[in-house]
Amino acid sequence: MERIPVLKIGDTLLVSIQTDLHDQMVLALQEDLADRIAATGARGVLIDISGLEIVDSFAGRMLAAIAGISKILDAETVVVGMRPAVAITLVELGLSLNGIKTALDVERGLRLLS
């Protein structure tokens, strides 16, 4: 199965989702991230979703779960790069992504975490 790479930059783990998400990939990513946070002591997780053409309620729940898991492991999550059409659709769908910090791009996201 294809896995989403997790990169480490300083105290931050960076994940860039560039492909249409299968459910199994999402679950593997949750586990990989939890393991990497515990192993590295990372304080921040940056998730770039600029490659995602849609975020449905499953993907939204996955992002919220990652943020929740990271928080318990003492790392903060910022989701960056959401496409404008995706943001419009998410709000109409009724998904508010409460509890998830967002930033426009990776640079601003890194600033939020520093």
Binding site: E53, V55, F58, R83, A85, T89, E92
Partner: peptide
């Protein structure tokens, strides 16, 4: 439009 495509594809996914 891109927004309408995104809405339809998201609905289809749900």
């Amino acid at each position: 439009s891109l927004v309408d495509q995104t809405k339809l594809v998201t609905a289809a996914s749900e």
